[in-house]
Amino acid sequence: MKVRTFGRHIREGGKNIVRNGWMTFASVSAVTVTLLVVGAFLLLIMNLNHFANSLEDDVEIRVFVDLGAGEEEQESLREDLDDLPEIGSVDYIPKDEGLEAFIDSLGEQGDYFEGLRDENPLNDTFVIRAEDPQETENIAVEIEELDHVEGVEYGRDIFEQLFSATDFIRVVGVVLVLGLLFTAVFLIANTIKLTIIARKTEIQIMKLVGATNSFIRWPFFIEGLLLGTFGAIIPVSVLGFGYHRFYETIGENTGLEFFEFLPTFPLVIQTAILLLAIGAIVGVWGSIMSVRKFLRV
C-alpha cells in the first residue's frame, strides 16, 4: 500500500469517529468501563499471585525423627528421604541446633529455657522443601509412612485456603472480564455498522469502480483501532496513578511482614501495555465483525 493511501485511510477513519459523536462516546465508554474492571482485576490477581508465590516458597515440611533413633537409623531415614521423587532439598537440624535457634528466637525470654540444654526435649529434625510447592501435601503423607518418623508438620490450612481464594478470584475475574469484553466488542461493532450504513452509497460506488475489499476495509479497521485505544487511555491513567498512590501510602508499609505488595514499576507499565493491547484488539475485532457482512458481493 502506498503511504498516500494509508494517510487517506487514517483520515477517513478519523472522520467517521467525529461524525458519529454519540455512538463513538458510547463505545469508547464501554471499552473504558471494561478495561477499568479488567485492569483492577489484573492488579489484584498479580498481587495475589505474588503473595501466593512468596508463601509457597516458605512452605516446608518438618520431619521429626523418633527420639529413640540412633545414628544408623537416622542415616537410613535420610537415604529414604533422598530417594523420594519431587524433593527439592533436605536439611538436617540436630536437636542441639534446634534448641539454640529456639532460644535465640525468643530473645531475653529465652533465658528461662537455658535449663533445657541439659535435657533437650526436642527431636532431631529434617527440613524438606518440595520441588513444586503444590505437591507439599502429597509428599508429607508419604513421609509419614517412613520408618523412624515420629511426626510431620507443614502449614496445611493456610495453604489450602490460599489456593482456593486465589482460584475463586481468578474465576470471578475471568467471567466478569469476558462478559464486559463481549459487551464492548458488540458496542464497537454497532458503532461501526452505523458508519458503514452512512457510507453505503460510497462503498457501493467504491466497489463499482474497482476498489479492492481491503482498500474499503482499512478506514473501518482504523476506526475500530482508535475507538479501542481511546477507551484504554482513562483506565491506564486512573489505574496507574491510583496504584502508585495506594502503594506509596498503604502498600509499602502494611505492617504485615509476610504480605508485601508489588512495587508500582514495572507492574503499572505491564498492565498499561496489556490494557492498550486488549483495547486495540477489542476495537479491531468489533470493526472486522461489522464490515465482513457488508463486503460480500
Partner: peptide, 24 residues
C-alpha cells in the same frame, strides 16, 4: 446517478481514480 452529495463535481470523478490508487 449515484453521486456523493458532499463531494464536488471534481471530487466525485476523482474518487474513482483515488480508490484505485492513482497519483495526484
Amino acid at each position: 446517478f449515484k453521486l456523493l452529495p458532499s463531494l464536488s463535481v471534481f471530487e466525485n470523478v476523482a474518487f474513482a481514480m483515488e480508490v484505485i490508487e492513482e497519483s495526484k
